[in-house]
Amino acid sequence: MTSLILSRLVSSFIALLGAALVAFVALRLAPGDAARLTLGAFATDEAVAALRSEMGLDQSILTQFYVYIRDFFTGDWGRSYALGEPVRSLLGQRFPATLELGLYAFCMAFVSALVLALWGAHRKGPISDGVPKALGVLALGVPQFWFGLVLLIVGFEMTGLFPGPAGRLPATVTPPAGPTGMYTVDALLHGDLKTFATALHHLFLPALALGLLPFGFLYRLLRANLEDVSGAPFALVARAHGQSRLRVMVATLLPNAIIPMLTASGLIFGQLLAGSVLVERVYNWPGAGMLVTQGVLQQDYAVVQVFILLSAVIYIVTNLIVDIVAASIDPRLAKGGA
């Protein structure tokens, strides 16, 4: 197990460097001059040159890359030239908002996929199997922003059960102070249950909208794998040992069927963070999505690079966790190391 973690850490580090390199090169290969874009068409060439040197754009590419990596890890994330604010303070508020939304969306998707797949496999029937299957098909076929709008219409306009597209908390509630920037977590840490509940209430619809697609994917994956292993001789033998159907399903079949779902979860979670822009838009969620989209359009290097690296770190940490959990379930994975 230790050697697995070590080898994963090394490959994670290489992956991180790779992600950094791709982000760095892609942005610099894009046409246009960031300094010129920042200052506008009417700025003098001297002013542009001065900004270029301030931004480090006149240095060699290698130096720029080195500075970029060094600054990221020392927490000096630079300044957004489009917005004139330090990236740290820009992303410091928005990234946790995206992360929190993504976490809730993912957990809802994962838990409901798990429960419904087990239920469907245990009680094969038109309802226990058909309803989640239909939901899964819907999830894979319907655009997330559209589903977000439908949820908004039903959950807010028609029934008033949930808050409208008003962001993370009503204006009258002061957000809890630090340390994570995720309001539900911070509220709990401060023992503020009322704010916790309010934040959760605001999270529900956007998280549902964002989580439907991963739900559909994870549900189908686990359901199919459960079906597969339920035909294995060990399923029969476990029942021959006197274990009930349900117990065999949960204690024997699930651990054998869940690994692909875990692996997929790692990938999906990264995807959620990067793909929440449209849902954030629909719910006026003050996340990183809009900021980064704008940053790409305006060649606002600093913002985009830091976002990519942050996402890469989260992605790599998630997959490291997934690998460790998977290896603790299946001993063959701990050995193989592949």
Partner: peptide, 26 residues
Amino acid sequence: DMAMAGVRGSRIGFVHQDPMGAFSPV
């Protein structure tokens, strides 16, 4: 299923023919 679970294993034992597949690998 519950009644049969009370018979299987404790009153009638069963040995499967496939020693590879009869054990959960995890």
